[in-house]
Amino acid sequence: MAWMAWNWYTAAFFAVIVLLLAVMTMLAVWRPETPRVGILRFPTTRGDRLFVSLIGTAFIYIFWIRFTGGTTMWPAAVLSVIYWGAMFRFA
């Protein structure tokens, strides 16, 4: 596995992703839902909102690094948390 260059940071990242998928699957089994239409103007399920949140977070980080140089990253993290909240609440 050495060629895959594992390290704790990305391992934790993948673990969180796997955990999120597992939680989503269990929620889908035990708490089924119907899609709802929010500020995105199309019906979204929990999975859609998670996807939009993940993609959006990536772009928040990219634009933060692009326009501030990325010397401090915590404001991007705060922005992402707000964005996640907004997506899961209003999307």
Binding site: A5, N7, G69, M73
Partner: peptide
């Protein structure tokens, strides 16, 4: 993804490089 946060001097020896590649 693993490569994107690390640097190497060869021989499969990697060390953490943070977000430097993205910067």
């Amino acid at each position: 993804i693993n490569y994107s946060v690390q640097d190497t001097m060869g021989q499969n020896n990697f060390f953490f490089n943070g977000i430097a590649w993205f910067q």
